[in-house]
Design a protein around this nucleic acid. Structure first.
Lengths: 251, 251
DNA sequence: CCCTTTTGTTGATACAGATCAAAGATACAA
DNA sequence: TTGTATCTTTGATCTGTATCAACAAAAGGG
């Protein structure tokens, strides 16, 4: 969900102290500040799929980095309409330093491992270690750009374009992990239910199902089972997103 | 558009060196770092209503703060569909340190005065003055929260709720400026065309027009002329936004 | 002042996607 | 293995908003 991830991979960072994330899927934080200080502070916690990590309004005791799995950040209107506002993949940051209570619900979409830091000491470290602050700023700005791209999607794209955009993001993120150019063909597991995708895209799950099958029927993607997607012609998928050909989405 | 503004006002900051912004509408930056350093760097520039400040893809030579007027941040799909992704009001920041080219179009919606800093020296200052970096991080995180609230609006709210949300944001921002509780009744000039509102809300201008007049007909707002809005019962307006009663939008 | 342009309103109609409903798949537990 | 819950697909229908079209009202410029 942010350019930071691509940059990390480009920079060749390959491991993260005692962190269990292996090779490419590195933690953005351990590399950014005095490694030892963060080493001492961190603790790992595993959440089951479907488990709520924090509710909006809860005290924010921790900030964290996603180590493995997929977590979602979402919001609900009074009558229950739900909108996901962030998809948190490995290396993404969870939580907001400087805020006492959480604004959004964070849930484990799959089994999730977080590398957690108590918020207060983390904030202290943030004030003391300039490099960490720089890193946080860079990430926050990247996420802001990504959020704005998502606003374009939510406000102006058709259902088909929305699905194509989501799949192209997941595909390119997967290909970064595998160090392949997406144009060579990517295949990946869609670790989200139709409902989760709908919540992310501002659609209903029925529309998501119909449009995924339409893209399959039109040969834009291949499906094996319900959850495994193969993109043979990545440029074709991109052309379905509605985006300007230059630039493209921030991933 | 961000909580930073409310915080600034709460903190009682009342002027900004030689900056022409008077009293409440303070510049977020001059207060944040070594005032003198920024004083030397800054230059003011006025843009006419409708003028493009930067196109997406342009070299980013400056970053800036809005002094007066309203600017918009927007994005366009290949076929011309347009989505505004930020409304920049006095004290809001424009531009992205650390990025060579702009990602979004920035336009003056009304006549706009910017307080500009050349990007390169600003970035250098950012690296040298921790207080400035902290400020930037805080603002970026606030804007990120605001962008996410907007994603909920774009993805899940009805046209009527969208209009009510926009009006309630403008009303509360206005009441902060005037140091009045919005519950006492606010009135303000809508300095946006129906089309600009539509681009912000992910609607067409016809729908915006119809829904504004529906809110007027239902007594939620009063209109004098096309552009002046009075909100007698702010709670009533809030109840039309669809938001959970606690919390509310980040402004 | 008139003329032109921009902005806003209103009506008729079309359609994308929501909603309602039901039936297949798939996974998982006993 | 069967039973149960969850996830997904598919169909029929409805509806909110877009689209198309025309006109009204302001705004700006000579």
């Amino acid at each position: 969900m942010n350019g930071n991830f691509a940059r990390l991979v480009e920079s060749g960072i390959t491991d993260c102290g005692s962190c269990p994330i292996q090779r490419r899927a590195v933690c953005a934080y351990c590399q950014s500040a005095e490694l030892l200080l963060l080493e001492q502070m961190k603790s790992y916690k595993t959440y089951r799929a479907g488990e709520v990590i924090t509710w909006a309004g809860d005290d924010q005791l921790y900030v964290a980095t996603v180590v493995t799995g997929v977590a979602s950040l979402s919001q609900t209107l009074e009558d229950g309409r739900r909108q996901m506002v962030g998809l948190l993949l490995p290396s993404d940051f969870v939580g907001r330093p400087g805020r006492e209570t959480a604004l959004f619900d964070v849930e484990a979409a799959t089994e999730v491992v977080l590398c957690r830091f108590e918020r207060k000491p983390f904030e202290k470290l943030l004030a003391e270690v300039p490099r960490l602050g720089e890193r946080m700023l860079e990430m926050a700005l990247d996420e802001l750009d990504a959020a704005r791209e998502w606003m374009l999607l939510l406000g102006r794209k058709t259902a088909r374009e929305k699905i194509a955009s989501l799949l192209s993001i997941l595909a390119s993120r997967e290909s970064i992990l595998l160090e392949q150019a997406p144009s060579d063909g990517v295949s990946f597991d869609l670790r989200l239910t139709r409902e989760a995708m709908a919540d992310y895209l501002g659609l209903t799950l029925e529309t998501v199902s119909r449009q995924i099958n339409a893209l399959k029927r039109d040969g834009v993607i291949e499906l094996t089972g319900k959850r495994h997607v193969k993109v043979a012609d990545f440029a074709r998928l991109l052309s379905e997103t509605g985006d300007d050909s230059d630039g493209g989405m921030v991933i």
